[in-house]
Amino acid sequence: MSQSARRRNQRGHGALLRDEILAAATRVIDAAQTEAEVSLRGIAREAGIAAPSVYAHFADRDEVLMAVAEASWRQVCDEITELSAPGATPRDKLILGCQTYVSFAQRFPLRYALMTQSADIPPAARQALETVTRGLLACRSRAPQSPPSKTAHRIAASLSVALHGVAMLHRSDSPNLWLSDFSTDEIIRSLVDAAILRLEHPRSAARV
């Protein structure tokens, strides 16, 4: 990380400074190995401002980390949308979205840990789950336009929890446990196919 001289924002441009602090915090987090290495002083240094200036926009370090986590959830959703191939089948799109999610965790392990450790679910995380739910519904062979049911939401949540497990095991170049025997893509495809099958047979899914 390198510190550069920062030009003072014009009056009324407080939102711009807040965005700069978040961008600096993201860079600090991505360069760190543990959360303990992330400090407000380090974030301020990366942003090119005095440490007290951070308090005009965030109450403390935890609030900065929460804002970075929320922005990261939005980034995941944007990447999934951007990388979805227009000509792909709904199943292919869902698999690609799941692969994108796991890839994000591998590229930004500390940010991903921050995204998933909060007890409060941020709005952008709920949006990510809705993206999974819509992707699953698009894969159904019947009644594709019907609104999501409680069962659909539950199956989507189950798929998301399973993907979280894959992401946690595969946040480095050395996969752990069963990911040493099977590729990440094989595992993701199996999880997606199992979720689609359960959605196609909701009565069986409800009994499990």
Rank of each mutant, 00 (worst) to 15 (best):
I155S: 04
M1N: 12
I21Q: 04
A24R: 06
R140E: 02
A23R: 06
L40P: 07
Q127F: 05
L114F: 10
W178L: 12
L114A: 05
S72N: 13
L137D: 01
R154L: 13
E20H: 12
R7M: 05
N9D: 07
R74N: 11
E186T: 07
Y55M: 09
C98G: 05
A50F: 04
S180E: 12
H153P: 04
A205Q: 07
I43R: 13
G12R: 08
V76Y: 08
G87Q: 13
T133F: 03
S4D: 08
Q33P: 01
R91I: 00
A128H: 13
Q99S: 10
A128N: 09
F58Y: 14
A162Q: 15
A113P: 03
G12I: 02
T34K: 10
S118Q: 14
S84K: 07
A206P: 05
I196K: 09
R111T: 10
R18N: 00
A157S: 13
A51N: 13
A36R: 13
A125I: 01
T100G: 05
A194E: 04
W178V: 11
E79W: 04
V102M: 08
H153R: 15
E200H: 10
V132R: 14
L163H: 08
R189I: 00
L22F: 02
R207C: 04
A88G: 08
Q10L: 12
V192P: 06
R18C: 00
R107K: 15
S72W: 11
H153T: 08
R111I: 03
D92K: 06
R74D: 12
R203S: 14
A5T: 04
H153M: 15
V68L: 01
S149H: 08
Q106Y: 01
V54A: 15
T116L: 12
L22S: 03
D120C: 04
D30E: 10
N176V: 08
K93A: 11
R189Y: 00
T151H: 12
A23I: 00
S103R: 15
E200R: 07
E70M: 03
Q106G: 11
R8V: 06
A124Q: 09
I49Q: 01
S183F: 03
E70G: 05
A205K: 03
D181N: 05
D62L: 03
I196R: 06
A36W: 00
A25G: 02
W73L: 01
A152V: 00
